[in-house]
Amino acid sequence: MAKGNYSLVTEFILKGLTDRPEVQLPLLLLFLSIYVMTVVGNLGMIILIRLSSHLHTPMYYFLCSLSFIDLCHSIIIIPKMLMNFLLKKNTIYYPECLTQFYFFAFFAISECHMLAVMAYDQYVAMCYPLVYSLMMSYQVCLWFVGGVYALGLAGATANTGCLFSVLFCKKNAIEHYFCDLLPLLKLSCSSTYVSEVVALAFSAINILFPTLIIICSYVFIIASILKIQSSEGRSKAFSTCSSHIAAVGIFFGSLAFMYLQPSSVSSMDQVKVSSVFYSIIVPLLNPLIYSLRNKDVKIALKKVIERTF
């Protein structure tokens, strides 16, 4: 049997967020409520955009894709995490663990590039309103979304493929609440140099490149906002812009802290806290920031409710 496909460990034990028994129940209730709100918020956003014809624009097409990514992201991570608060020993089989990591990496990388596409879309809408419909046509939007998922697929396949070349011999307790790359590599009994180099390279591409696009887009957006004559319109635009930047900053900041430094530098407690932000908090915040602060979404929601009841 080939060495790359062989593993002495058949199952892993997920240690969870904390092993303190007195906080298990409060954390269970907290993350269960977050999970319910995340699912309701993102699924509601998808349904609302599909039902409201006046939301069938590039901006909401991308927002619908972002909500789908966040919804899948939460479903992959949080249910298994909640089991840590209920079970004394939360096990996950080797194939299931790698499958969880594969889909986590796919949707996390896709979200990085989707946020960059949404920032670019806002830049075009603000700076080139007269040719917006031409620059962001239906075909262009399809290419953007297809490219986002293609990059997610490539990154997830490369990182998961590296895990198949790593041997797990005796240690099987993952100091984390889901199967992530760095906690898994810490359990390896073989060399992880190639896996760490590949992970660092793909992390740099999938974090720094979208971040650069987002920063450039928002610099031009802010410059365009400053040209608005009305102080009320300027303050409203800045309010919306700042909330978007805050959500993007939390997501990319926590990802960069996790993946753009050597694995020996950060402790597992820091890794867990950082992971909570990009895997749990951001999928909850995105539908709130991108929808509830949006006048068009509020109008569409009101019309759907009136039409339904």
Rank of each mutant, 00 (worst) to 15 (best):
V23K: 12
V124H: 01
E196R: 12
I222L: 13
L32F: 04
V271A: 11
H54A: 15
V304M: 13
T57V: 02
K88P: 02
A256K: 08
A204Q: 15
M268Q: 15
L134A: 11
C141N: 14
L32D: 01
I47Y: 05
L28H: 06
S203H: 04
L130V: 08
P183H: 03
V166Y: 03
F85T: 05
Y35S: 04
E232S: 14
L212H: 08
L226A: 03
S235V: 08
S279K: 11
L51S: 10
G253F: 05
V276Q: 09
T18L: 13
N206V: 08
L55R: 12
C72D: 00
V248A: 05
G249C: 14
C189I: 04
T240H: 06
S33I: 06
I13E: 15
Y93F: 05
Y6L: 13
V198T: 00
Y278H: 13
E306Q: 15
I305D: 06
E22R: 05
V282D: 13
C162W: 02
S235F: 11
V194D: 12
S274L: 08
D19P: 12
F103E: 05
I214K: 03
Y123G: 06
L17V: 04
C169I: 02
V23T: 12
I69P: 00
V39Y: 02
L182K: 10
A300D: 03
S7Y: 06
F168H: 07
L260A: 08
L163H: 01
A223T: 12
Y123R: 07
S188I: 03
I305S: 10
D180H: 11
Y61V: 11
L82S: 05
F144W: 06
E22K: 00
G146F: 09
L51F: 04
L55P: 02
S279G: 09
Y278W: 14
Y290R: 15
S239N: 05
E232M: 11
I305T: 10
I280N: 00
P26W: 07
Y94I: 04
Y278G: 10
C162Y: 04
I222W: 03
L87K: 14
M83K: 10
P210A: 15
D269T: 14
P283A: 05
P283W: 07
C141R: 13
S133H: 15
T91D: 06
F277Q: 02
F101P: 01
V265M: 09
G41F: 00
S7M: 03
Q122P: 01
Y259W: 11
L28E: 03
